[in-house]
Design a protein around this nucleic acid. Structure first.
Lengths: 252, 252
DNA sequence: CGACTTGTTGATGTACATCAAGGTACGTGG
DNA sequence: CCACGTACCTTGATGTACATCAACAAGTCG
């Protein structure tokens, strides 16, 4: 099982970061950009399947995702796995390690990824020198919490069909925000086993539920290509209630 | 349905706060104490059953719990309810409202409570003037995230018996940290229906599972009084894996 | 006035039929 | 070989129904 190593890559200045211009992301002042450029210690390429962070250990790094997908998960001693959330470009990873000595969850790359690396010990400098950036970190933590709340509602109280619709819709919307979709389609990097482990269902039942969902003609999912055919219908099935009217989000 | 109103109560200086001396909580400098005293706009008494925060609305306040219990929950249009987490003394409420326009969850008092109230608009002053306190807020958000991760693992991947043991143990440990337990007992303020809504189970099945758990003689729960009879056995059944070796936590 | 009855309500406990979800097995196709 | 698809039987969880018990309010009677 591959483990992420220390970053070696070259450094691209943050002003030239391909994500920086995205309309969902809040603008940084030149000063902030400059600070973050120094905060950054390097870039890291990892292959799909790499463990970026590992339950029971502690990493000296914080990561921002420049490209690719990952997922956070917890795994029990007997192998049962719960996927907690998915991470995609502009997401932030590793903050929990600043609170506990040991990570309580793992993060695995779903695809090849490009990450921005920050040394954890510099985090304090960010708090003391740049309160707006500190607030951004809190913002991102609170957003993660919100996503987890929704997931918990899904798994605990929605039916298999609702859950499935809800998860796919949720991931589509997040991907859409960072420009990963083309019209109503997206190339999802995960398998039915991942869906099963996210929704607390068995693989077989997930498969049957996905077929049932496809039969409603609200969506299609073939060869990892997900397509929304009738968004309103899908929202209806998912029982989606999020107002989702968010301000522009931070990206560190 | 009662809704919390603006605080009217008198103000007790933070130096005399009964929680401040607890050994799990980190010490504040006199300067920090002074700032927090000013940050605080008042105290609020609420009765059991009061909605402190309401899904779909936004509150101008942040709260710290001085005494009593509450629970965070999300409720679907048809009444299905998912309890996300419980809140007890020294916990912080309402941060998510600083991230989204509308609260995505509700908070209801389980018992009569005494709260410390902070106006949300002063939060920025805390970030700009007191980075250590800002970091504390982030710390608390990351801790909430960690608890949610564990809950999601519970609901998604553990059996009914494991879940139940896990939840009761988790709440006991948290309560123990803030001194709410007497030896191996605690007066829990919730009913079997709350447990059911936390674990994503029906009331009937929760009842059967609790009986089954009691039959292992690792715990007892009668008239809301919860008692751990064999802690190791309970940890075993719960499949508890948390290292739990945390530094002293902040309390704002 | 106090003691006793009655009715109500919320929490818990248990039985039984039903159904959603799981597990195993064995397909296919790339 | 892995991801997906489907059949089959089994089991865990649900929903309904009903019984118990304590707390509490209202009303009645000696």
């Amino acid at each position: 099982m591959a483990i992420a190593v220390a970053p070696t890559g070259r450094k691209v200045p943050c002003e030239k970061c391909p994500l920086r211009g995205k309309p969902v992301l809040r603008d940084f002042t030149p000063e902030e950009l400059d600070f973050v450029s120094n905060f950054k210690s390097g870039e890291l390429h990892v292959d799909a399947g790499t463990n970026l962070l590992l339950q029971g250990t502690n990493s000296a790094h914080l990561y921002t995702i420049l490209s690719g997908w990952a997922f956070r998960h917890k795994t029990l001693a007997d192998g049962r796995r719960q996927i907690l959330n998915y991470s995609m470009p502009a997401d932030f990873l590793g903050l929990q390690g600043s609170v506990t000595d040991e990570m309580q969850h793992s993060v695995e790359a779903l695809t090849d990824m490009l990450l921005c690396v920050f040394p954890r010990e510099k985090l304090w400098g960010l708090y003391s020198g740049h309160p707006a950036l500190a607030f951004d970190v809190t913002w991102l933590a609170a957003r993660e919490e919100q996503i987890l709340d929704e997931n918990l509602l899904n798994v605990g109280r929605r039916t298999a069909l609702e859950r499935t619709a809800s998860l796919l819709l949720h991931l589509f919307i997040r991907a859409e925000e960072v420009g990963l979709t083309k019209a109503s389609t997206i190339q999802f990097p995960f398998t039915q086993q991942h869906i099963a482990d996210t929704l607390g269902m068995s693989l077989v039942h997930t498969n049957k539920t996905l077929k049932r969902l496809a039969a409603t003609r609200s969506m299609r999912w073939k060869d990892r290509l997900f397509e929304i055919l009738d968004r309103d219908a899908l929202v209806q099935i998912a029982g989606y209630e999020q107002s989702q009217q968010r301000a522009r989000r931070p990206f560190i």
